[in-house]
Amino acid sequence: MKIVIQIQRYGDYGDREPVKAEGATQNQADWPLWEVFIRSKMGLDHKHVGSLHAADAQMAIENARDVYTRRQEGISIWVVESKYIHASNPDEAASFYDPANDKVYRHPTFYDLPDELKAM
């Protein structure tokens, strides 16, 4: 089986035209893919929980409700069509993330203060 890498997917984007996977039958009957983000409790951020297929945004929200909140997982849903997600490139991980390693002064524990100091 020959596998062609399709670059149309969450976490896998570029500016190129998507490469059609071999034998793909993208037709009217196939709904586009959406990414789903759920906020679990009041105050917490929306979190990516997975994806699903839907014909439009309204349906995507309802499908997300039925698929991803069957066990009271959420109180708020965001959906975004997968093709609109842009992701960082893992090949650039070193230049993206390593520079933060030596910026320890961004963390509160960097500062040496006397124990007597309270409420800070």
Binding site: W31, L52, H53, A54, M59, E62, N63, D66, V67
Partner: peptide, 11 residues
């Protein structure tokens, strides 16, 4: 008719 709607009607 597809997985998503199977789940919806079952709900």
């Amino acid at each position: 008719p597809n997985l998503e709607q199977d789940i919806a009607i079952s709900n």
